[in-house]
Design a binder for these strands. Structure first.
Lengths: 392, 392
DNA sequence: GCAATAGTTAGTCAGCTTGCCTAACAATCA
DNA sequence: TGATTGTTAGGCAAGCTGACTAACTATTGC
């Protein structure tokens, strides 16, 4: 239920200013007339609202109309340099590495770096803080205007305990690490599961765009699931453990196969499956990529079919619980499998359950976790600006 | 994101009146001073707001304070007779039957009936419309003031197609049946899955009260799941199919046991399991009730342990996908199993997965579906009243 | 024991402030 | 000339503050 808002004419003013800023952020550059149409406010009020936003440095004139009759209308936009967002992706490769980027209020990426990081030698918060300072200096952005840092980690964040769980990167399981980073940089720091952030990117840049929600199945070394409930709201679970589908049981304990989904479609299981089919298996993704590239080889086809059948078990479980409008296959393995794997899983799903949930391959070619972190940070920055106007 | 509200002083007035009505509905009887504290409005404005609400018949004076110094303050409450809600539960027993109840704006049940219904002879919408008229006449409530009818059906409602799917009650699978009922009674009619409504009742009257959300596993002849995301928001899925956990696959197709959860813990499977343990099995619930009542019998204990292990598989799948703060066992079987079954499932879950989701038995002794339908209808009525004030 | 009085609270009234709207107008461009 | 932009002036709606009356309790004085 909507907040029970009550107040005086002052409230009206803040609401109108805030609503106008939201329109500028969401719909891009607008003339006074456009804004009038969106808000329903009168001409003088629209002028007054824009005057205030401009005074506060939140809106700027970016041009003038031309061609039509009458004076050239001023075109207003949210000031791109009013605030910045930083996205960070902490990776758990052979060597832990950091990817980070900074963008302005319009989402334009101003700087991006990737570095190896020895979290054994340097404390995690020190390392990240230093890297963010370097990033901002290089991009020419004022650190003081960074209003949100969104970190993505390979693990689940428990907001109740304030701890990152199930994370293998050294130093990142320490409690309070975010608070320290936040205090060091004097900015709001939030953490989220990397798969969740990949789903954010999928909504903005990939096949999740415009959907009513989707379930993103992350197939990589590990196994994960992100649940977009529509409109970008993510289901995280009581302890941030929603989507830990590696734990979905497969069969009763008496079964001969792996007892859970991780044992069936986790990276090592996929490698083992490839080897069992006589295929080379550097990594799971390599094996799948090689197989999709050589479909003439019967072993490759059989491997993919067997893999698809296993994935379909997971998708069927997810679909039965959630009935998502769409299931997205992502992660290195999902990406490597491409349309071939997607079609194979679709076919396998038909034979597994009566549900016919559409399946798609990820549409994000770039680093989904980093892009998602950036977008998530940007949304927080925008919300903070709007809310700051609402409660002055 | 909150609606981008913009407008003039008229908007302010409607917002304040509407917020005040919401407080009256949620917090019960209030004096002017109480309302002032909640809304932050001034004394004259509070008076004006209450004057309007009273004029519109939405609020009434229900008493006066006494004991303190000064004049006796008037105590206002939402007018219980301003609007009514009707809840209907369509049951699929040997003979299809209808349970329905009507309540006033405070939630007080004014009338309740249960009837067998021959949907073969009489069209479903005719039968329900007639029953609702009788119900209201018997309860002395004006049918014109019934602002919402919430129907619960054993099936899933697809809002896109406007059809109830997977329903075995004759006549209820016809498209447009709700529209016809709505037009006949001139009231807003909504349908929902019976298990979803049981979850609504669980939140209001049962162990779901005050929780951050829960997953309600419905064990009866069929098998179902309702997902409360917190605050009473239910996850329904793209085609209303969320929670169809009967379709969760159990094992690959090679497995020797039932290929999905329905084959494992559906009513017939439970009966078969009881028989295999040499126990009588009139219905699944009877078998479970009998077993919990005779724990000294080793066969009964073995039966319950085997059943708990199967249920734990389903709970583990749900917990891995959703990580709910709580899992509630409900339905005839869940209720019959009581604390014994709950403890057995908890123990079995420990051996199945590393997740330790708390499990509880339903706390709703009465007809959960009917109570949930009533409560859901009541919420719609309240929302309708508040929204009607907001946009005059 | 009773009445007068002081103190507190409920609710209303008057005057003021804020903010938005309508209508009119000057300026600009095809 | 006609359409459109943006501003100005005047008016209206709604809420707020502060003052005031009325009502009720508690205490004091006799």
């Amino acid at each position: 239920m909507v907040a029970r808002l009550a107040g005086s004419s002052k409230l009206l003013r803040t609401m109108n200013v805030s609503a106008s800023l939201e329109y500028l952020l969401d719909r891009g550059p607008l003339t006074r007339a456009d804004l009038r149409g969106l808000t329903g406010l009168s001409k003088p009020t629209t002028s007054e609202v824009l005057r205030r936003l401009t005074e506060d440095g939140l809106a700027v004139v970016v041009g003038r109309t031309s061609g039509g009759p009458g004076p050239q209308a001023e075109i207003y936009a949210a000031n791109p340099t009013a605030a910045y967002a930083v996205g960070v992706s902490v990776r758990e490769t052979r060597v832990p590495s950091l990817a980070m980027a900074v963008c302005d209020l319009t989402g334009t990426v101003l700087g991006r770096v990737e570095t190896a990081a020895d979290f054994g030698r340097q404390a995690a918060d020190d390392a990240v803080a230093a890297a963010i300072r370097d990033l901002c200096a290089g991009a020419g952005t004022d650190l003081a205007r960074v209003r949100a840092v969104q970190v993505g980690v390979p693990g689940s964040y428990d907001p109740v305990a304030g701890v990152i769980r199930h994370i293998d990167v050294p130093g990142w399981d320490a409690p309070g690490i975010l608070d320290r980073l936040g205090r060091r940089l004097d900015v709001a720091v939030t953490v989220d599961n990397d798969v969740n952030l990949a789903a954010v990117a999928e909504r903005r840049h990939g096949v999740g765009h415009g959907t009513d929600g989707f379930a993103l199945v992350w197939l990589s070394f590990g196994l994960g699931l992100a649940i977009d409930l529509g409109g970008g709201r993510l289901l995280r679970g009581a302890r941030g453990g929603a989507g830990e589908i590696g734990y979905v049981p497969v069969g009763l304990r008496t079964s001969e196969i792996g007892t859970d989904l991780h044992g069936l479609v986790g990276g090592q299981a996929v490698q083992a499956l490839a080897r069992a089919h006589g295929l080379p298996a550097g990594t799971a993704a390599d094996a799948v990529a090689a197989a999709t590239g050589s479909l003439a080889d019967p072993a490759a086809g059989a491997f993919l079919a067997a893999l698809a059948e296993r994935i379909a078990v997971g998708v069927a479980a997810v679909a039965a619980v959630l009935d998502p409008p769409l299931v997205v296959l992502a992660g290195e393995v999902g990406q490597a499998g491409g349309d071939v794997l997607r079609d194979a899983v679709t076919a396998a799903l038909r034979t597994t359950t009566p549900l016919d949930t559409p399946i798609a391959t990820t549409g994000v070619a770039d680093d989904a976790v980093l892009l998602g972190a950036l977008d998530s940070g940007l949304r927080q920055v925008r919300r903070a600006l709007v809310d700051a106007l609402r409660t002055p």
